[in-house]
Simulated scan of single mutants.
Amino acid sequence: MTASPWLAEPMPAERLPRERLEERILNLLSSQNMCVLATTGDDGPLATPVRYYSLGFAVMFTASPRSPKVRNIAADPRVSVGIFAPLVGLASSRGAQLFGRARVLGGDNPERERYWPAFRWENEHAEQGRPVTEPPRDTLVVLEPDRIVYTEHWLRREGFAARQFWRRA
């Protein structure tokens, strides 16, 4: 007897309707807070775990302007971000790979203002002993992905492919 017969081969190939796919991606992005940022630098690839916040499909985090990840983004802004939910078994496998060009927004960049409402900076200020009455001046790194590869094996129960593909309209 198989615990999850719907996980057996052959795998379905059906594409999820865009609206349903977007809902699942947004749910994943808003329900997690850690990702792995992949950049490339002179020493090769760098995969860095970072705490992130999301606003729609955008993911963002603060970073020191002198950090290796910011130096790598300055040299080549093409990045990948991996986000995943805790895994219990194949049936619970759920995650996304986001691809695009990261933007580094310094303290004086006016574009930052649209992202800060989603960023719970007060938590970080409290952790660092900084006043929660002063808005952050930290460097903000933002990825508005051009494409996302979303994987959720539970979709196979409904006859959809576990791997789904999203591209910015």
Rank of each mutant, 00 (worst) to 15 (best):
M1R: 11
S4T: 12
P5Q: 08
L7S: 00
P10H: 02
A13Y: 10
R15N: 06
P17D: 10
L21D: 10
E22F: 02
R24K: 09
L26V: 02
N27P: 12
L28E: 08
S30M: 06
S30Y: 02
S31T: 12
S31F: 11
N33G: 04
N33Y: 04
M34C: 05
C35E: 03
C35V: 01
V36L: 15
T39C: 00
T40S: 08
G41W: 00
G41C: 09
R51P: 05
Y52C: 02
Y53S: 03
F57N: 09
F57R: 08
M60S: 04
F61D: 06
A63C: 01
P65L: 04
R66M: 04
P68R: 15
K69T: 10
I73H: 01
P77I: 00
R78M: 10
G82M: 15
I83S: 00
P86A: 09
P86L: 07
V88M: 09
V88E: 12
G89S: 07
A91Y: 11
S92V: 06
G95R: 01
L98Q: 14
F99Q: 10
F99L: 05
R101Y: 11
A102I: 15
L105N: 08
G106R: 06
G107H: 01
G107Q: 14
D108P: 00
P117V: 07
F119H: 15
F119S: 14
W121G: 11
W121S: 11
N123E: 08
N123H: 08
A126D: 14
G129S: 02
G129Q: 13
G129I: 05
V132I: 10
V132P: 14
V132S: 10
E134V: 13
P135D: 08
P136G: 03
L143G: 00
E144C: 01
V149M: 12
E152Q: 02
H153E: 05
H153F: 06
L155E: 14
L155G: 02
L155M: 14
R156S: 03
A161G: 10
F165I: 13
R167H: 11
R167I: 06
R168I: 04
A169D: 13
